[in-house]
Structures are given as C-alpha cells and as structure tokens.
Design a protein around this nucleic acid. Sequence first.
DNA 1: ACTCTAACTGACTCATGAGTCAGTTAGCGG
DNA 2: CCGCTAACTGACTCATGAGTCAGTTAGAGT
Lengths: 201, 201
Amino acid sequence: MAAADRREQILAVALDVFATGGYHETTLDAVAARAGISKALIYEHFESKRELHGALLERYVHELLERVVSAIAELADHEDRLRAGVDAFLGFVAERRDAWRFVFRNFADPEIAVAVARLREEIAAMIAGLMRADAPAEWVDEPEMVAEIEMIAQQLTGGFQALANWWDEHRDVPRARVLQAFMDFAWVGLERGAAGERWQR
Amino acid sequence: MAAADRREQILAVALDVFATGGYHETTLDAVAARAGISKALIYEHFESKRELHGALLERYVHELLERVVSAIAELADHEDRLRAGVDAFLGFVAERRDAWRFVFRNFADPEIAVAVARLREEIAAMIAGLMRADAPAEWVDEPEMVAEIEMIAQQLTGGFQALANWWDEHRDVPRARVLQAFMDFAWVGLERGAAGERWQR
DNA sequence: ACTCTAACTGACTCATGAGTCAGTTAGCGG
DNA sequence: CCGCTAACTGACTCATGAGTCAGTTAGAGT
C-alpha cells in the first residue's frame, strides 16, 4: 500500500475511534487494530499520538470554519449572515458525521475554543450592529450592554451547539427545519432587540 | 484526625482536583499530595477511584436537582416555573463554584446525561402545555410538532448551560441580570408560541 | 506504664499504553 | 534472478498510575 494512501487510511480510522471516545480514552493499539496494521506503522506516518490527533483537529476545524466563513463572506444583511452561517455549519454536521462528532468531543480543546470564541464574537458584533440601528451608539458600548450582548451570544451559540448535536441523532428531520427552528428561536429575540423593545430599560 | 473528617477532607480536595481536569486527567497521587496524605489512606475511605468520583457526582448532581425540583414544586404557572427553576440552578452555580465546575466537566457522564434529559423533558412538557392552550390538542402530539418542541428544549437547555458557564467567569454580573437575560431570551420565543403565532404554519 | 486499635505510611505489584528497534517481506528496476 | 528500498511487524523498553500490604505511630481507656 502506498504511503499516502496508508496515511489517509490511518487518519480515517483514527477519526472514527477518536470520535467515539475522547483523546485519553482511545489508544493507538486500538487504532492500529481497527486499521489492521501494527502500531509501529502509525509511527512511520505520525510523530506521536498528539500529532495524529492534532492533524485531524486542524483538518476538520479548518474545514468547518472555512465553510462558515465563505458562506457568510459576501452577505451584508445581519439576518442573511446568521442564516447562511448556521446553514453552512449544519451542512458540515450533515456531510461529515464522524468529523462533527470528533470535533464535538474536543470542544474543550484550546484550538476549538478559539474558533468558537471567534464565531461568538462575530455574533456579538452582529447583535451590536442591530442595537446600534435603534439605540444611541454610546449606549451600546457601555459595559452593561456589552455584558448583555455577550450573554445573548453565549445563549445563541450554546443553544445551536445543542441543537446540532440533537440533529446528529435525529437525521430524519430535514436540515431546513432545523435551520428554521434556530432562526425562529434566535431571531424573535434579536428582532425584538432590533425594534428597540428590550434595550431601553 | 477523625475518620469522618478525613473523608470529608478527601472529598473536598478531590472535588477541586477533578474540577480542573477530567476523570482521566486526574490521578489519586495528585489528590493525596494536595491533601497532604498518602494515597493508601484514600483507599481506607473509598473502594476505588471510580467510587470516589461517583460519590462526588451523586452528591452534587443530587443537590443541584434537589434545588431545582423543590424550587419548582408548588408553582403552577409555566413562566413562574421556568424562572424559579433557572434561578435555583443559578443559585447552585453561585454558591458551589467548584461543584458546578466539577458537574460541568462531567456532562458526558451517564448519570448527568440522565438528569439533564429529565430537565429537558420538563421543559418540553412546559412548551407543549403552552402550545395546547392555543392550538388544537391533537396537533401538538403530531410527530412534526414533537420534534419542534424537542428542538426548542434543546436550544433552551444548551443555551442556558453556556450562559451559566459564562457567568462562572463573569461573577461581577449580578445573578438577577443573568436570570433576566435568560428569561428575556427564552420567553420571547415561548410567548410567541403561546400566542399561536408560530405553530400555525 | 501498658495495651489495643484506629489512623496512617512507604515501598511494593501489576496493568496499560506510548514510543522504539532490529529486523522481515514484497515488489520493482536492472 | 538479484538486490535494493519502502512498507511493514513482533517483541521490546519505559513511564505512569491504580491498587495492595506489611508494617509504624499516636493517643484513648484501663
């Protein structure tokens, strides 16, 4: 078997094994066994367990981010951006089931935490943009309001993550309905915010 | 040192150590060192590492559940129940910081998964109750609507969890505001549902 | 002062899993 | 048919961490 093919096969098997247990729970012996090769061969392709794990992490976090970012790219309207970003995320969950589980299992990992924080900031900025449209600008930047925005962003991202994970185990539900469920839920809050109903105490 | 006191001390130290790393990341040697005792002494009080971990899990999951359930107990109105339950949960996060982190780190654990599922069902039932008030009863029990309700419940619980965790690192924000942020966010969606705006396609 | 026991320890065994190495095989160019 | 190298393996080392055991100490009761 050619080296490049073998490397890909090891990555594929490792993705699967890492996706069911976490990092500490999975052993390279198990990966080797599942791939039908000896453990030593894994070390021909990867320096260490960490490197193997890191290669997967980088590959799929990058892909996920890529999808979201490029989906958002040319959209200006806040609602369009949110919908497109979330839909792209759902696309990843739908098409890369193992990868999603793998990523989800590693949400504590620094690399992922950074990516999630980035998305959260994106959403926070979107909310701030909405608020600015209806409230005095300096109001929006006050620490009280900043905290308010952060809390909404936390709830949106946390809620979405839970929803995505639920969908992973209810694939019969069409993607469009999941997207709609999120938009309904998120947007009513934001819409209200946009209408200035909530921000003025 | 009396046996009962020592047992409590070990539990306290173990809570702290387990709360920073997960189960696999923490060693009993580390717990013993932090407690200033030998590892063997831990085994005088607990059968195994699992049992020590399990004792903590049971204690605090039980306490958390207790708080929520007893806060909800005598309330009938759906909004009151949601507010009281969430506030009780926040009380736990506020008063038992280490315990919250410990519990949070173990969200993958079956025992916790079961408890969370129970709370989620509680919320799903509440949503269904709201819907029933405004929509034909048989409509609510259709599989399509059941999925819809589950998705909302997922978002509520997932969003709240993220919010609670955020609060854990932003203690300066008053508890009442966190509660309000959640209620604002959740209730606009539910209120709309109650008004029958969303359920009739 | 003398047990007797509960609290406690240091030094062990044993299993597991990461990482290594001295090779063996297979297939391909000459 | 030979030899050369890339792919591959079995059997190892080594570190770590769970769990054990043969004791030692301290202090309460007589």
